[in-house]
């Protein structure tokens, strides 16, 4: 059996990769995908702990998170589309009208 530590390290790494992606990638769609990676890292941690505790709540939580992530992605994509329609770009660097 794989020790819990391994799962946690994997989850932490995934989380860091996702976070780094959101912070560094200029394309809004990629940033959105990176956020999904962060959420998946959390799901992985939930599942690992569920297995460790022998407890079903972690599994249930995974479903909750998937549903929420779907809703979030839908709204996020809609916002990106709205931005693209008005500004003809999804490059985060170019969205700097609001500042100061």
């Amino acid at each position: 059996m794989v020790p819990i530590g391994h799962y946690l390290v994997l989850a932490g790494t995934l989380f860091a990769i996702g976070a780094a992606g959101v912070v560094s990638r200029r394309n809004a769609i990629v940033a959105l995908m990176s956020i999904e990676i962060m959420l998946n890292a959390a799901i992985l941690a939930f599942l690992a702990f569920a297995r460790l505790h022998g407890d079903l709540r972690g599994h249930a939580m995974a479903f909750f998170v998937m549903a929420v992530a779907a809703a979030e992605a839908a709204v996020g994509l809609a916002i990106v589309v709205a931005v693209f329609r008005r500004r003809a770009t999804v490059n985060l660097d170019e969205l700097r009208e609001l500042k100061g």
């Binding site: 956020i35 962060m38 959390a42 941690a45 709540r57 969205l95």
Partner: peptide
């Protein structure tokens, strides 16, 4: 301005939600 505000809010908010969710996972653990 409005969609730009929404996108910025969304990216920050989703990022923070990710952090919070990971925290919940750790607490659960």
């Amino acid at each position: 301005r409005s969609p730009e505000a929404a996108l910025k809010y969304f990216l920050n908010g989703a990022f923070a939600s990710g952090i919070l969710l990971f925290g919940v996972a750790l607490c659960y653990g």
